[in-house]
């Protein structure tokens, strides 16, 4: 389903609701600061700028969750159309999912030029308002 491209943004927030205590414990056990980072994001006032590694991880996650993308082919150097087999309309959907993930508003002309993951990483990492 084409519209499911936006599912990761929802799942990321729903994931903690089934059993908060157990989920919190699991998150704290695996990564000590993961939960703090999760809770801090909704209250972010854009003071903490994203690191490039964080941008890459989240972008890869967005792409892997897209229904038309083969997760095994996703890599930081992937081209949307040549490597992942998406067409131009799918690329538009992916760029929109990226905007939703990082709370950005990318101008139409610039969004049209983002056709590979390195360009997306460059744009988001250099954007001062990415959250």
């Amino acid at each position: 389903m084409a519209a499911a491209a936006l599912r990761p943004a929802i799942l990321r927030r729903i994931r903690l609701s089934p059993s908060p205590a157990a989920a919190a414990g699991a998150a704290a056990a695996s990564q000590p600061h993961a939960l703090a980072r999760w809770l801090a994001r909704p209250m972010s006032s854009h003071d903490a700028h994203l690191t490039r590694d964080e941008v890459v991880d989240r972008l890869l996650d967005v792409l892997k969750c897209h229904p038309k993308v083969d997760p095994s082919k996703v890599s930081p150097e992937a081209h949307f159309e040549k490597d992942l087999g998406l067409d131009s309309l799918d690329t538009v959907e992916v760029v929109m999912a990226i905007e939703e993930e990082f709370k950005l508003e990318i101008p139409d002309q610039e969004a049209d030029k983002i056709d590979s993951l390195p360009l997306a990483i460059e744009y988001v990492a250099n954007h001062p308002m990415a959250a």
């Binding site: 131009s88 309309l89 690329t91 538009v92 959907e93 760029v95 139409d108 049209d112």
Partner: peptide
């Protein structure tokens, strides 16, 4: 290009 922009705005 027109189709891509139109699809983006419509979406």
């Amino acid at each position: 290009e027109r189709v891509r922009l139109l699809y983006r705005r419509a979406l």
